[in-house]
């Protein structure tokens, strides 16, 4: 009897938490279908009757912000940066773990050190340097992300490389593999679970990052990313179109939820692994 009561109570609490977690999402979803003048007056009413405006907010918002184009650039920058990070930092981590000199030790220390430094410390000088090197464009962004992500990625890969037994690599070398072939055919396949973890952490960070693309690419180019566009929509015009804002928030969250549903197991595992190591 007591057990049953406890069970029911537990479920009640869990359902209450579920409501709290989902409420903000339903709030913007419902309001995205309401006329913009009703949002502030009747924010918690359902979008029915004369409140309902169909997809008007969506079409308005898309025209005003160019969110679809931003989604394209967000996607491009995220995928290319994460790809570069996986490829190059796994190689670097492998090299730094296998070649033991004072230089490689110092370099490894620098990578780990960079994880501690807050972005504000380098933001001004980095943007200046990026300008001189002509990196203030989408491809340049990817190179900058390779540099910013290198610390955590090298650290995570290096932790795993240490646990790979040397014997299998030695066997490959005796069979005539050069270090590159050895890395591609023997080491990297073993690193794959770590690569998935690293990829998920980097994708989440780059997709959601606001300050770096805002400072490097800015608002007056066609290469804006989603967070930059959302910030512009609210930040620039005093007379906000709240309907459009709601619709654009919904559209920004949608791809994340789809991505999450598609690979939630990897995401949760990856984030936990990253947290424990970082």
């Amino acid at each position: 009897m007591r057990n049953k009561l406890g069970k029911t109570l537990t479920y009640l609490v869990l359902i209450a938490v579920t409501v709290v977690v989902l409420f903000p999402l339903f709030f913007i979803l419902l309001n995205s279908f309401k006329g913009k003048f009703f949002i502030s007056k009747q924010p918690f009413d359902l979008p029915v009757g004369n409140l309902f405006v169909g997809l008007e907010n969506y079409t308005n918002g898309l025209l005003k912000t160019g969110l679809l184009q931003a989604a394209g650039w967000s996607f491009f920058i995220t995928v290319v940066s994460a790809g570069l990070l996986i490829l190059f930092t796994s190689m670097t981590a492998y090299y730094l773990t296998r070649v033991k000199t004072a230089w490689t030790n110092a370099l490894y220390f620098l990578f780990v050190f960079s994880m501690v430094v807050p972005f504000q410390m380098v933001m001004f000088t980095m943007v200046d340097l990026a300008g001189k090197l002509h990196l203030r464009n989408p491809l340049g962004m990817c190179i900058l992300y390779l540099g910013f992500g290198a610390g955590l990625c090298v650290f995570m890969f290096a932790g795993f490389v240490k646990s790979i037994p040397m014997e299998i690599e030695e066997a490959a070398m005796i069979d005539g593999c050069n270090p590159l072939q050895n890395f591609a055919r023997v080491v990297f396949p073993v690193l794959r679970p770590t690569a998935v973890t690293v990829a998920i952490l980097q994708v989440m960070w780059i997709w959601n990052d606001y300050l770096l693309p805002y400072l490097v690419i800015g608002v007056s180019t066609p290469y804006k990313t989603i967070p930059v566009v959302i910030q512009m929509l609210v930040g620039t015009n005093g007379n906000k179109d709240m309907g459009a804002l709601m619709a654009m928030l919904v559209l920004s969250i949608l791809p994340i939820i789809i991505f999450y549903m598609a690979c939630q197991k990897y995401i949760i595992e990856g984030v936990v692994a990253g947290a424990v190591k970082g």
Binding site: T92, T125, M126, L146, G147, L180
Partner: peptide, 22 residues
Amino acid sequence: PVFVLPTLIAFSFSFLIPFIQG
């Protein structure tokens, strides 16, 4: 040059040089 240099160059652009300048 293959294993370390690409990461190191990007790392210098985003972090090392800006940090020292900073």
